[in-house]
Amino acid sequence: MHAFLLLVHTDPALCGLLTGRLAVTGPVFVHVDARADEDPFRKACPQAVFVQNRVRVRWGGWGQTEATLRLIETALTEPEVRRVSLLSGQHYPIVPDARLTPGPLTDRIAALPAPDPARGKPESRFTERFLAAGRPGSASAVLAAGIGRRLPALDPAQALGGRRLFAGSPYFSLTRSTAAQVVAAARTDAALRRYFRAVVSSDEAFFHTVVGNLDGVHLDTRGTTYATWSGGRHPQPLTPGDLEPAAAEGFLYARKFSSADQALLHAAQALAE
C-alpha cells in the first residue's frame, strides 16, 4: 500500500482536493503546522489521518524535518504501508494515478552530492550555524543570521560519522524499509541529529544524506516534484503551460498550486485522464 504524507499550513480547500485525488491510490496522512488552525483541514479532508503531536514549522528550521519524521512514523504504524511519498499542501499530481507509485524497490529522492554551489548548495550552507527566528527577512531573522555566521563553524565530516553529504529537493518517495531506516537514524544518532538541527533547511539534506549512504537501495535521484524558481526562498506560481513539459520530463507532481487557480487545477487533472 502506498501512503501519502502531506505537510500543510494553508489553503484547506486545496488540501481537500489533493487528499481526495490521492486517496484513490492509498491512505493520506496530514501534518498541520502547529501555528495553524487544524479544524478547517479536518473538515476539508475527512478521509485523512492527522498527526496528533504537531510541531511548529519555521522556514529553514528543524521543524520541517521533525514534522516529516512524525508523518513517516505515523504512516509506518500501518503494517500494510509499503511506500511513503512526501508532498506539501501546494502539490498536485500531473500524471495518471497508476504512475504515482515508483517500482517496488525504488527509492526516489534527489540525493545528489553536496556541497554543490551550482545547485544553490554552497559549502557555507553546511558549515554556518542557522538560528531560526521569526519569518524570513524579519529583523529578528536577519539578526539571528548575523549571529549564526559569527559562531564557530560546523564540521560536517565529524558529525556525519563517515557518511557522505547529499542534498536536493525535499520531496521524495521511499520504500518502507528505507523510510524506517531514516527514522531510526534520526532517533538514535544524536550527533547526526544535532548537526542537522543546526543547518539551514535540514529537510533538503537530512533525508538525502541518510538514504544516499544506505547499502542496497535502488536509488532514482530525479526527485518527484517540478517547481520553478527565480532565486527566492519559495517556488513561483505555476502556469498551465508548465505542466505537460514537466510530466514529459518524468515528474510526478508539481508545486505550487492554489485552490483559487481553477485553470491550473483543471490542466493538471486533464493530464491524469
Rank of each mutant, 00 (worst) to 15 (best):
G241M: 11
A191H: 10
H218K: 14
K121N: 04
H31N: 05
G63H: 03
T19P: 01
R58V: 06
V81Q: 00
E73H: 06
P27K: 13
G232M: 07
F207H: 02
P240V: 12
D97H: 09
T178N: 09
Q90A: 08
P240Y: 14
H218G: 10
R70T: 02
L14P: 00
P152Y: 14
S177T: 14
F166K: 02
L7W: 07
F196I: 04
L160T: 02
V51E: 04
D11V: 02
F50S: 05
Q236M: 15
F4A: 00
A133M: 12
E78M: 15
F206C: 03
T65F: 13
D39M: 11
H31T: 09
K121V: 00
Q90H: 13
A270D: 12
P152N: 08
S138K: 09
A139D: 09
R163E: 04
T178A: 14
G232I: 12
G120F: 05
A67D: 02
G137Q: 06
G26H: 12
T175F: 08
A3I: 08
A157K: 08
T74I: 01
T68W: 08
D203M: 04
T74Y: 10
L18N: 08
F41K: 04
P152A: 13
V182F: 05
T74V: 03
G63L: 13
P27E: 11
A111K: 01
P96R: 06
A118F: 00
F172I: 08
T188M: 03
E38L: 07
A186K: 05
